[in-house]
Design a protein around this nucleic acid. Structure first.
Lengths: 254, 254
DNA sequence: GGCATCCGAGAGCACTGCTCTTCCGACATC
DNA sequence: GATGTCGGAAGAGCAGTGCTCTCGGATGCC
C-alpha cells in the first residue's frame, strides 16, 4: 500500500525538481550551481516540515521517518541532507534562536524610555515562548540527545541578551544609570562587554553580572510559567510577569 | 546467547525472593502481605537501576528494556511494576524532587542569619543540580514526553520554594524585613501564603510575588549554568552564583 | 490438597535511527 | 550526439525501542 504512492510521489518530486533545475539553468544567473539551489530548496522544505512536526509532537517525538513520509520520500534519502536526526534538531535550534532573537529585536523601540524598552523586549520573549512552546523548550529546556551544545549556536543564542544589553548601554550613555565604583570583580569575562551594552564607566563588572543574572531570570520566569511550575501560585500571569520584569530592571539600575 | 543467562538469573531471583518471602512470613509481622513487600523490593530495585541509568544516559536515553536486561528479567515483566515508561519517569521525577528538597532543607540552619540561610539553600540547590545534572534536567528542563505534569508531584516540587519561604517568614517574624504597605495586588494566589513564609503583615502580595520571582530566578541561573548558556560569559561560576543569590535576597528585602 | 492469583517469559507488532547497496537520470565531457 | 561520471533517491536490512498478548508455572491462601 505504501510502495506505490511513494514511488509516484518520488517521480513527481523528481520531475518537478528537474524542471526547477532546467529553469534556473536557462536563466543563467546561478551564483551557486542549479543543483545546489535545488538542494537548498529541499533542505528548506525538510526543515519547514520538521518545524511543523516539532510544534505538534515536540522535540522528543520528532521523527525523521515521519518527515520523510510526509514529504513523500524514502527515509534513507533524508540522510543526504542531514547526517543525523540531531543535526536536524541543531538546525531547528539555530532557527529558533534566530526567530526569538528577531522577535526581541523587533520589539525594541530605541526611541522609548529604557524601562519601557526593557519591558517590551521581555514581553516579546514571553510572547514568542508562549506561541512556540516546543521550540522554546528545545532552546531553553534540557539539552536533548546526550547533549552537545553546538558552539555555532552561540551568536544566535546571544541575540536576546544583546537586545537587553543594548537597552542597558543606551541608558548608560544617556546618563540614566546610577553611578558605579567600577572596581573589577572578575565574575564576568571580557567577552560579554560588547554584547552587554558596550563600554561605559557606569557599566562595571557588578552591573554586567547583574545583567547576566536578570537575563537568566527572564528565562527562568518564562520557563517556570511554560513548564507549569507556577501553576497554582500565580493568579494573573500577565501582570505578574510585567511586575517581575520591572523588578529585574530595577536590579540593573533601570 | 541471551536466553539461557536470563532464565538462570530469573531462577536465582525467584528463589531469593521466595526466601525473603518465607523469612518475612515466619517473622509474622507483615503490616502488608509478604508478596506486597517483595513487590515493593523489586520496584525499588527497578527505580534504583533506572536512576543509575538516568544518571549516565539521561532521560531521553532511559530504556525500559535496558533496565530489564540489567536486572536479568524479561522486558515484558517490567510492565507488572510500571504501566509505562512515563510512569517510571514520573516516579524518578518524584524521587528527584524529594532528594533536591531534602538537600535544600538540610542546608538550612534555622539559627543562622536570614541572608546566610538564604544563600545556603541556594547553594545546596546548585550543588545538587551539579551533582545530578540529568535528574535536574528531568525536573526543571523540558517536560519530557508529550508532557503531562503529574499533579501529585506538586507537593514534592514545592519543597525548595518552601525552604526559601521559611527563611523569608522567619526573617519577617524577627522584624528583619522592610515594612510593606500590604495592599493586595492580586498577582499571586492565596495558596502560596502557607508555603511562602506564612502570614505576617510585612509579607504582602508584593513580597510574595518577588519571592516567586527569586524562586524562579534561582532555577533560571542554575539551569543557565548547567545547560551551558553561561559558557563564555561567566568567569568565576561559584562567585557569580553567590553574588547573584545575594542580589536576589536583596530583592525580597533580606 | 486444591484453588485462585500473581508473576515472569516469549513472541510479536509497530515504530525508530541509521547503513549499505543498487539503480536511475541529469550533467559535463569527448 | 554518444559516453561516462556522479549526485540523489529507493529499498532492504540491522539493531534497538515501547508496549501487548498469551501461556505456563510457581506461590500464597483457604
Amino acid at each position: 500500500m505504501s510502495v506505490l504512492p511513494r514511488s509516484v510521489a518520488c517521480q513527481e518530486r523528481r520531475s518537478r525538481l528537474c524542471a526547477v533545475l532546467s529553469t534556473w539553468h536557462r536563466d543563467g544567473v546561478p551564483p551557486t550551481t542549479a543543483r545546489e539551489r535545488a538542494r537548498a530548496e529541499l533542505t528548506a522544505e525538510i526543515t519547514d516540515l520538521a518545524r511543523a512536526q516539532l510544534a505538534t509532537v515536540g522535540a522528543a517525538g520528532l521523527s525523521l521517518r515521519a518527515v520523510a513520509r510526509e514529504l513523500g520520500m524514502a527515509s534513507s534519502a533524508m540522510y543526504r541532507y542531514f547526517p543525523s536526526r540531531d543535526d536536524l534538531l541543531t538546525r531547528l535550534i539555530l532557527d529558533g534562536y534566530d526567530a526569538l532573537g528577531a522577535a526581541a529585536e523587533q520589539a525594541d523601540d530605541p526611541t522609548a524610555a529604557p524601562r519601557e524598552r526593557w519591558l517590551a523586549v521581555c514581553r516579546a520573549v514571553r510572547a514568542w515562548a508562549r506561541a512556540h512552546p516546543h521550540e522554546y523548550a528545545l532552546l531553553y529546556g534540557s539539552p536533548v540527545p546526550g547533549y552537545s551544545a553546538p558552539p555555532d549556536t552561540v551568536p544566535a543564542a546571544t541575540r536576546v541578551g544583546a537586545a537587553l544589553g543594548r537597552v542597558l548601554g543606551d541608558a548608560a550613555r544617556a546618563g540614566l544609570l546610577p553611578p558605579a565604583d567600577g572596581t573589577p570583580t572578575g565574575l564576568v569575562t571580557a567577552a560579554v562587554a560588547p554584547v552587554l551594552g558596550g563600554d561605559h564607566p557606569v557599566l562595571d563588572d557588578r552591573v554586567r553580572a547583574r545583567a547576566l543574572l536578570t537575563w537568566s531570570s527572564l528565562f527562568g520566569a518564562v520557563s517556570f510559567e511554560l513548564f507549569g511550575h507556577f501553576t497554582g501560585a500565580v493568579a494573573d500571569a500577565d501582570a505578574f510577569f510585567d511586575d517581575a520584569m520591572r523588578d529585574l530592571a530595577g536590579l540593573v539600575g533601570l
